[in-house]
Write a protein that binds this DNA or RNA. Structure first.
Lengths: 209, 209
DNA sequence: CGCATTATGTTTACAGTGATAACATGTCCG
DNA sequence: CGGACATGTTATCACTGTAAACATAATGCG
């Protein structure tokens, strides 16, 4: 593009042809678009446009759209984990802290609907458990620690895993139902959730009632 | 889906135009495609191709793609409700029956991944609660009845609603996590869920621990 | 320093999509 | 019978992801 009227270069050393750090810029723009939530589907071309580069420039840095998306997922997951960690700290840890991480999860989801949905749908298999971003205190580890401290000791490792699964499913389900418009998004509901305690226990096979 | 395949409406209007009853055929093809799960995104053109009509013929029966999707959602929701009702009956009602409806929900989701995801994402606002398909015993009503019988009487209407929400969120979250590959799809896990009982209760605002 | 190699960005092109408009045809009803 | 209307088709457009060929900047080696 020779017409440089609308140079969107944010980085100072944006000498014409070579954009300082296109890869990072693309990721930023992508995340930004997903957060704006405007377009249900972010397109490579839109991202490129945003950065001020030709549509196919993206392919010098990402093999395809899925690859870009995958990285954005990880970014989102990190952000989410941060929000949870912060909520935990703000609530002073303990059981209340744990509930707060759940609330943070839901709030993050409804605050970033497009991102969150794409995030979950494009997370690499086993994503949250993967080591891609386990460098820091990340949601899953936090969840694990919390569950361990909440589940009766005799439940064993299996019980811990089941507890993690159920807790996660709980907040995730609530988040998705809100995102999908099946349940009204209401801070009140989130608060109610936070101050509710759920317990689950195996019940031996027995006649109902 | 059987009501229109072989037994043509005895009512006159199904006189052969060009395709007999394109609208129904399109819906069938659409549902079929979503169930095959092959293509992540079913396209109007593909549906049309499947039925053997020109791409734009669809627009004589649906204003746009979203409209087609919406109807497919409702079909899926009905199917899901049927599966749940059947599971309930098979389990002999009661608490076990209720758990079975949860299992049926999850199993339907993992058995129809594409359909289920699109179903939830495109369900009209408040979809499951809408009267669009409340003609029969549908999931939500069943859920409500079950919750009412399981929640302590003093919880009141609000407690019932909250219970419904939490139960739904639980199975929905588990389903989505499996669909998204965050949790391995395993019949064992589903069974474990079915034989677990979850309880939730409000805890008054109190110092943690 | 000069030049070849490589990294990066551009242009061009293609197949596929949802959608609109103009057209063609079949069906029905007065 | 003949027009009115419902249904299906043929262009056509704007948009998408992606590949191939090309152009330019940065880099390294003689």
């Amino acid at each position: 593009m020779s017409d440089n009227a609308n140079s969107v270069n944010m980085t100072a050393p944006s000498r014409g042809y070579h954009h300082g750090d296109l890869r990072a810029a693309l990721l930023d723009a992508g995340l930004d678009l997903l957060k704006s939530g405007s377009a249900e589907t972010l397109s490579l071309r839109e991202v490129a446009r945003r950065v001020g580069v030709s549509p196919t420039a993206v392919y010098r840095h990402f093999p395809d759209k899925a690859a870009l998306l995958k990285e954005l997922c990880i970014r989102g997951a990190l952000e989410l984990a941060q929000a949870q960690a912060q909520a935990m700290k703000a609530a002073g840890g303990g059981r209340k802290g744990f509930a707060a991480t759940g609330g943070a999860y839901i709030r993050y989801a409804v605050a970033n609907p497009v991102l969150f949905r794409i995030m979950m749908a494009n997370m690499p298999p086993g994503g949250f458990f993967s080591s891609d971003f386990s460098d820091d205190q990340v949601g899953i580890q936090m969840l694990r620690d919390n569950i361990i401290s909440l589940v009766p000791k005799e439940a064993g490792e299996e019980g811990v895993l089941f507890g993690m699964l159920m807790s996660w499913a709980q907040v995730h389900g609530l988040s998705m139902l809100m995102l999908d418009g099946q349940v009204p998004v209401s801070e009140e509901t989130i608060k109610a959730f936070e101050s509710s305690r759920l317990e689950f226990r195996f019940v031996p096979d027995q006649p109902s009632e």
